[in-house]
Design a protein around this nucleic acid. Sequence first.
RNA 1: GGUCCCUUCGUCUAGUGGCCUAGGACGCUGCCCUUUCACGGCAGAAACACGGGUUCGAGUCCCGUAGGGAUCACCA
Length: 471
Amino acid sequence: MQTDMPTVVTRFAPSPTGFLHIGGARTALYNWLLARHFGGKFLLRIEDTDKKRSTNEAIDAILEGMKWLELDWDGDAISQAGRAERHAEIARELLEKGKAYKCFATSEELTAARDAARASGGNFRGDLWRDRDEGEAPEGAPYSIRIRMPREGETTISDAVQGKVTVQNSNLDDMIILRSDGTPTYMLAVVVDDHDMGVTHIVRGDDHLNNAFRQHQIYEAMGWTPPVLAHIPLIHGPDGKKLSKRHGALGVEAYRDMGYLPAAMRNYLLRLGWSHGDDEIISTEQAIEWFSLENVGKGAARFDFDKLDNLNGHYIRNLNPDALLSLIRNDLEKEVGHTLETAEEERLIKGLPALAERAKRMPDVTENASLFCNVRPLSLTENAAKALQGDMPALMGKVANELEAVTDWEASVIKAAIFSFAEAEELKLGKVMQPVRAAVTGGRQCGDLVETLEILGQEETIGRLRDLIAA
RNA sequence: GGUCCCUUCGUCUAGUGGCCUAGGACGCUGCCCUUUCACGGCAGAAACACGGGUUCGAGUCCCGUAGGGAUCACCA
């Protein structure tokens, strides 16, 4: 049926040699958005043809990263290694067609040829056996299979991001497509898999741009239609240098642990290299509707934590109290040392929005949230302690007495009580509010003080005030 | 070194030959709001890498230079 044939099929094809880093995450996001935009399919393929470097831990980390970012793929993740037989079959077909040939060169010969080519300022093409008869090879000698690249003319690819890019065919090397042990190389495997999986659009890092020409020739040799290519620029570190494991390249789970929200991450990554006019805050739904390869930038982008923080703050603020609580629950309970009681939960639900207003990363919320828990005596920050020096404890004791007389524990009443107290003591309002804030929050940030007192409850408020005298 | 790609405020970017006295966002500075810190509001400093063309007119097109990057494995 034509109708159930998706018009757009994209894929994300990471090699499982490490975690899902930020560049990979963005590549995955763009592929995902493109597929969702067109109502097509987004496939996941693990490029594990290099068994020596691939690990199951890495596969798990990548899958976990994708799930955390909420990028769902269609169908099961495909193992490239599991398709080796099919790849070898294509290699043999190419051989039969005369589009590939056997290479009996030893690694020493290859290295020597490579060094010579480089020394003469030329290009190594690996073609030692291109024009030799295989009968010249020793009986039973191992051989790899190399593709026979055209030597005349040029190859042009129309990249959706980079535009038309042309390279002279004389620069193309007769790369190995099947190793002497019979396993396929990446160069062959990608092409065969993308073709077999019906991939229509390949979005990947521009470190693959040079490979595109080489792979293009496999499509040509097989008579297959090449997919649309989009090579997106790489992401650099804050200092403009390339991201590497030693240099700021973190797995997405590291961002999760730092307290970034998946939605913020997606929004940030989306804008890092793609734009839609002046829009900055873009929901995932909106992104799906707007996403297009045409608006992907060509220049490499630097990763900027300040902007990510700003965006993250926005998404934290938009979380509802219940979601917020469930996100911080674990860490908060660890911090206060006990399972949250119902009364504490109730306070948190009321108090969390004000904290979210002030947060950039989730730990900002968690740290301040302990103020709504039963932890007495409350630990004081340096500034809070300073604000409570001298005769402040005594003053707080008086405030406590004043608040104890309040029969209707409600913000307006509490406020009136504090106001009249300040007036009676002939103190400026700030002179009372400031120490009360310090005493009750211990220096933690929160919103309106009086409202905070209301949420905290009369008993806890007075207790915290009197703890000062006791201490 | 060969090949290929890239280049607008500090950063992410808008800009597809006249709408650009180059716009937005983050960050930064100042002010306002204010019971802390934020949020929010207002104002401000801040960029077309350089040099040649093409054109009546160039950030936008072409060439060169410089700078940055990618790649050159029986890795992916």
